[in-house]
Design a protein around this nucleic acid. Structure first.
Lengths: 259, 259
DNA sequence: CAACTGGGTTGCGCTCATCGCAACAGATTT
DNA sequence: AAATCTGTTGCGATGAGCGCAACCCAGTTG
């Protein structure tokens, strides 16, 4: 335990591991935070270190402790910092557009960005459906996300192929594992401004997504709508056009020169 | 410079100071980040330390660096951390506020979120009254819930009208079925931070609600208090202000930058 | 071109903050 | 009362971070 990694600030890493655990309920439902021992065990670290680290984090407002259960959860300061990040602006601008999409089709609408080879979902606008899988703040490999096709639309073909070859063998096979199909999807995204994919890791029947460009014309994000039932072809095109329009309007709102 | 404070983890404090600087443009509009020297000078710290700390922070995704200008900005990881734990935190943090409201007026207090065109009640804090209608986990159409007016406060007028027209004919007529009254209510919610509605589907005499904003500034939820007897006008305003204050405090606790 | 300036990184000893153990203190359970 | 689970703290060894200074790189300036 606690290997001698040659790397830099170990303290930072430790603190972030702790924060990740506190954030990482992910699949579990609403827990009321986590205790020191549980966290220590999960991270395979000394209880004492976790205890001390948490106290420091608490003093700084990064975590807070329920006075009665003595369990920790993320604190206000983290949220305040997050509010000031670049992404926050993107979120605020995109909210109305996502809302419109979500209500128009009564399906969840998302805004995603590319982070390395992962697709990070920034906002999820829930539909009226009973269960709403929470994707916000979650990263998935780019090849498994519908939005991935939109986000990679501007990449050179070679880079895309490289990425696919590196990732595909290891991972599960995506909806369209075929390389050529991917290239076709990317071309579709470029020419029509949207792209549909059949199956996703979600329990949905597919998804449609469209690239969003910033003021420099670079693809900064993608909107995507996951479909719980597979629509007929004409309907799919209709949805696609709606999403493409939405993405275009959002791009314009971000300063992308209309064309 | 860099006093010998007797305190705990100095590294954490340093990192957070740096993050605060990166976040703290506050008044200035979109600067494209800050350079090492500038930050070091502002914090009265060694350039070398700031440089090293920033590299570590970047490796962890807490900050990101513009490859061309070499300036640093807050990174995606902050956002991801905050986003993932947002709803869980909402429930946790709101409990004391709801309790306070419930006891202050001896009426049931609720926390509701928007799911598509439905209002879902996440938490109900019972008053001391004998019968407590259980609302937790129940969805009602947005036009029939008091909290709906708060939750829609940020929507564009056109979207609201669209929703009203789609829903009203089919459904029962709500307390305020009149479109203009709705728009007035939304405006009231925006300017005063709360809104009252006369009658609800509950067996109550009305309800007062207020919007709660998350760290991104989006309306994430609404607090509402249902009233079993209709109060006099001045009393209603008093209650409204109390709820608006509560919602504001809750928003702040969620990381909404006060302003 | 050489000298200068300002931003950023890195080498390197010294020292102090952090580590892990183990003991301790409460709360709950048996 | 013993057992167990929680979380906190004392303490000595040690290694990580500190600050200085040297350095690299790009622009400016003479």
């Amino acid at each position: 335990m606690s290997e001698k990694l040659p790397v830099s600030s170990a303290g930072l890493r430790r603190d972030l591991e702790i924060l990740d655990v506190l954030a990482g309920h992910g699949d579990e439902r609403d827990t009321d935070g986590f205790g020191v021992s549980w966290i220590a065990q999960r991270l395979d670290r000394e209880k004492s270190q976790v205890s001390r680290a948490l106290r420091a984090l608490e003093a700084e407002g990064m975590v807070e402790r329920d006075p009665v259960t003595r369990r920790y959860r993320l604190g206000w300061r983290l949220f305040a910092l997050a509010a000031r990040s670049q992404q926050a602006r993107l979120v605020q601008v995109s909210a109305p557009f996502l809302r419109r999409l979500a209500t128009a089709f009564d399906e969840d609408a998302h805004l995603c960005v590319l982070r390395g080879d992962q697709v990070l979902t920034l906002v999820s606008m829930p539909s009226s459906r009973a269960y709403h899988r929470i994707w916000e703040g979650v990263s998935v490999p780019v090849i498994m996300a519908a939005a991935g096709r939109s986000l990679l639309a501007d990449w050179e073909p070679d880079r895309v192929r490289e990425l696919l070859r590196a990732k595909l063998p290891a991972g599960l096979d995506s909806a369209v594992s075929d390389e050529e199909q991917w290239m076709a999807d990317l071309a579709h995204a470029r020419t029509f401004g949207y792209v549909a994919s059949d199956v996703e890791l979600d329990d949905s029947a597919g998804a449609v997504s469209a690239p969003v460009r910033d003021h420099r014309g670079l693809i900064a994000a993608a909107v995507s709508v996951s479909l719980t039932r597979v629509p007929a072809r004409p309907r799919l095109e209709e949805i696609g056009h709606a999403i493409a329009d939405s993405a275009r309007a959002l791009s314009a709102a971000l300063g992308y020169p209309a064309c």
